[in-house]
Computed example of a mutant assay.
Amino acid sequence: MLKNDSKIFLKPINIEIMPAKNEHIKGIKILMKEFYQDEPVFNAQKIDVETLDESFFDYDKFIKNDMTFVAIDTSNNTVASLATNEIIKSDYSVVHREEADLKYKSNTNLYRTLRLGVSIETEPCLFKIFNVNKILEIRTLATLQKYRGYGISKALAKCAFLAALNNDSISIIRIDCTNYFSSLIARELGMECVVKKHLSEYKDEKGQPWINIPKKPNDLLQIFVFRK
């Protein structure tokens, strides 16, 4: 795990990777809004990110969770990239469904997008497949457009690997990819694709796809894992 005084520099730009701190919240807000504006599933649902309440982003959670890492451009202190990681347990999909039902039912497109996420978490259940009660999940890899192409997201993802290697209770690292580029990063990290499904296969109680399907190549879900 990186400590607060740890420094990883990437060239040709001056990027320092570190755990997220309170001072990074403003930059994280800018980054996460750009991330969701570009995200293929959100785009296909025509979700207006600017209208979303800040509780949806849950910025404080980024700071409380010591497994969230940011890449800072040291020349101007911009939060160039972000990786949110979380140790999840088998009941986490229940929590996410309750949260969606409680907070977001009035926003149909957002609600159905979140319910897609719940279906992805449970179909199939990786906890049963790998017989584990904890999994380290790389939840978000986000990079501002001007900083893409330098391998920053890949470097941030490696921080999750370091966290897992230093935690004896974690044997599986997981990343769910509905974005083609995140799937490329997963492959470059040597992760194994254990699930590959067209997003239309995830259906609601009436047998209808949860969402409007994004265009290729972002119409697939791919779940990658790394086994220690």
Results as ranks from 00 to 15, higher is better:
N4M: 05
D5V: 10
S6R: 05
K7M: 09
I8A: 01
F9C: 09
F9P: 03
L10E: 07
K11M: 05
P12Q: 04
P12F: 02
N14E: 13
I15L: 15
E16F: 14
I17S: 10
I17H: 03
P19F: 06
A20M: 05
A20D: 12
K21P: 07
K21A: 12
N22T: 01
E23R: 12
K26L: 14
G27A: 11
K29W: 07
K29I: 08
I30T: 13
I30W: 13
M32A: 06
K33V: 13
E34G: 13
F35Q: 07
F35D: 08
F35R: 06
Q37W: 00
P40I: 15
V41H: 01
F42L: 07
A44R: 09
A44D: 09
Q45L: 06
I47S: 01
I47A: 00
I47N: 02
V49N: 12
V49F: 04
E50A: 14
E50F: 12
T51I: 13
L52C: 08
E54T: 15
S55I: 09
S55D: 11
F56E: 06
D58L: 02
K61I: 00
F62H: 04
I63L: 07
D66E: 11
M67T: 06
F69G: 01
V70Q: 10
V70N: 09
A71S: 05
D73W: 03
T78H: 11
A80P: 03
A80S: 13
S81Y: 02
T84A: 12
I87Y: 00
I88H: 02
K89W: 02
K89T: 10
S90C: 08
S90D: 14
D91A: 13
S93Q: 10
S93W: 15
S93K: 13
V95C: 01
V95H: 01
E99T: 08
E99H: 15
D101L: 09
K103G: 03
Y104N: 02
K105Y: 05
N109T: 08
Y111G: 11
Y111R: 13
T113Q: 15
T113V: 09
R115V: 10
G117L: 05
G117M: 00
G117N: 06
V118I: 06
V118W: 05
S119Y: 13
E121W: 12
L126M: 10
F127W: 13
I129E: 05
